[in-house]
């Protein structure tokens, strides 16, 4: 399962982040590492606003598909 399949209000645990090296590194710095809990705050045409730690991160659909998650 990836972030792209989640709906507003869903919570999940990150398992793995794949994709382009630089973007992966940036996501990592923002807290997208294995084990972190994310919550979907908003969703619009596949683009998402996510709550990670105490911040809100906007990602597009392509990026969301690169983040593998599991149920909490």
């Amino acid at each position: 399962m990836t972030l792209a399949g989640m709906k507003e209000g869903d919570r999940a645990r990150i398992v793995r982040v794949s994709g382009e090296e630089a973007v992966k590194r940036h996501l990592g710095a923002l807290g997208f590492v294995a084990g972190t809990i994310v919550r979907v705050v908003g969703e619009s045409y596949g683009n998402m606003i996510l709550a990670v730690h105490e911040s809100r991160i906007a990602v597009n659909d392509a990026t969301a598909r690169n983040v593998e998650v599991a149920d909490v």
Binding site: G19, V23, H26, L30, I57, A58, V59, A62, T63
Partner: peptide, 12 residues
């Protein structure tokens, strides 16, 4: 090539 990713922190 696709500029496929978009990652941006939304400040409060």
């Amino acid at each position: 090539g696709e500029a496929s990713s978009f990652v941006l922190e939304l400040p409060a």
